[in-house]
Every structure is written in C-alpha cells, then in structure tokens.
C-alpha cells in the first residue's frame, strides 16, 4: 500500500488559515482528487484551523500543528493546538452551538468537518489543547 506523510507547524495567525488549507490540498493532490473532494478537504481544514485560532488560543499566539498521512487512498489530517481546550466536546460538536456568539460565528465548524470528511475524532483536555483527527477516502476512477 502506498504511504506518505508530512507535518507542518505555524503560529496561530488568521493569515495562516489560507496557507494551511492550501498546503493540505497540495499534499492531497497526489491522490488525484476530484475538485469537489479537494474543496471538501480545504473547507474542513479551514474550520479546524479557525477553531484552534479563535477558541484554542482565543486570538493569543500559539503553535498549530498539522500532520497528514496518506495510506492507500485514505488521507488522514490531524490538527493540534496547545490552547485552552474544550470542556464539553459533545456540546461543541452540536450544529449551531458557539461558545462565542459575539463573534458572529455560525457554530457549524464541527458539522462541516463531519459532513465533508468521512470521519472526525476530537480529543480535548482543558488547559492542554485540542486534537482534531479527520479522514477521507478518495474515490478511484
């Protein structure tokens, strides 16, 4: 089975949201994805990185790591922050739930990740950080 992997680390600046999703999409492109598959991955990564910036670090500075793995036709993306963590992961994953209503956020971040990828696992510990693991299998032609 074909395998590949990569890891990047960058500071929690909102400018890096676009950087992160483009890097992951470029890595995934070796699987010859459709435009829709690539767009799904970019959107999910954008949500995870935005969560790390807004909620994990609450706009203070910190490091965000992204690890990607390809195994066969499956892409795994792990987005990790070492910020304040999520007290109640199940509540945070509810559609429309937002802990920061003043920011005009829709509360759809985790729902987008869940819908656009095949799997989503969220591990979080208050004051330690959050790890979001997503996988997606790319169809072959």
């Amino acid at each position: 089975m074909f395998k590949n992997e990569m890891k990047i680390e960058f500071p929690s600046k909102s400018q890096n949201e676009a950087f992160a999703r483009v890097v992951v999409a470029a890595f995934a492109s070796q699987l010859d994805p459709t435009i829709e598959e690539l767009s799904d991955v970019k959107t999910a990564v954008s949500e995870a990185v935005t969560n790390a910036i807004i909620h994990g670090y609450e706009n203070s500075s910190g490091k965000i790591e992204i690890e990607c793995k390809i195994e066969g036709r499956t892409l795994t993306v792990i987005v990790t922050d070492y910020g304040k963590g999520i007290e109640d992961v199940e509540l945070a994953k509810q559609p429309l739930y937002t802990s920061r209503p003043e920011l005009e956020r829709s509360g759809m971040g985790f729902t987008v990740m869940e819908t656009f990828m095949d799997s989503l696992e969220v591990e979080s510990e208050p004051l330690k950080g959050t790890r979001v693991k997503m996988t997606k299998e790319f169809k072959s032609f």
Partner: peptide, 13 residues
C-alpha cells in the same frame, strides 16, 4: 472561489 462556515455568519449578520 472558497468559503468556509465563516461565510454563514457574514450572511446571517
């Protein structure tokens, strides 16, 4: 050419 859920907040706002 790209939009994530932030766009929902912009439109609803």
């Amino acid at each position: 050419n790209f939009m994530d859920s932030s766009g929902i907040g912009v439109v609803i706002g």
